Simulated assay, not measured.
Amino acid sequence: MIREFQSTDLDKVMSIWLEANLQAHDFIDPEFFKQNFQLVKMLIPMSTVYVQDLNGVKGFIGLTENYISGLFVEQAYQRQGTGKALVNKAKQRFNELLVHVYEKNTAAIDFYLAQNFEIVSKSLNEETQEAELLMRCVVEHKVKIGQCAL
């Protein structure tokens, strides 16, 4: 079940955030994520966050307007539709989604391409000095008389 973030989810969300970042970004010094942990913990409640709750939080998506500021899933639940379901939740809210993905994170790039994102541009992340791609998805909402559907 996808639901809105609750303050009681914060510790689990942060655990997933740290574990998934360390797993997906082995090309970045782990200290970078550890040093940013408290800042992210403070920012999470200020964002729009949805969690995948399957007898406990297994993944989450954080949004700042239509920008995906984070999408993280527990390793044991990856490649099982959790990430896709969370992106679809965001697609219900916005006509366009944007996300930055490190160029070396090919699994994430492939995931977003499969969700109909396209690569818009490439830049250098100033904090990590790693190349990242800006990806964009335009959501087409099909409108039927009396209802709205994706």
Rank of each mutant, 00 (worst) to 15 (best):
E96W: 02
E127Q: 06
S15V: 15
V49I: 12
K104R: 14
S15H: 15
M135V: 11
L22A: 12
Q52C: 12
I145S: 03
E74R: 05
F94P: 05
N105F: 00
V120D: 12
L18S: 14
G59P: 01
P45T: 13
Q147F: 09
K104D: 12
E126F: 01
Q115V: 14
E31F: 07
V120C: 12
D29I: 06
Q78D: 05
A20W: 00
G56M: 14
Q23T: 15
G59W: 01
C137S: 12
N66R: 08
I28G: 04
H25N: 11
Q147R: 15
Y77L: 01
V101E: 04
V40A: 15
L63S: 13
N116V: 08
V101H: 05
L86M: 08
N105V: 03
M14Q: 09
E140Y: 03
L113K: 04
Y77M: 01
L54Y: 08
F117W: 06
P45C: 06
S15F: 14
K84V: 06
A108Q: 03
A149H: 09
L43T: 15
E65W: 11
L134D: 07
K91Y: 08
S69M: 03
K41T: 13
S69F: 00
F37G: 03
A76M: 09
M46L: 01
G146R: 10
A108S: 04
L134E: 10
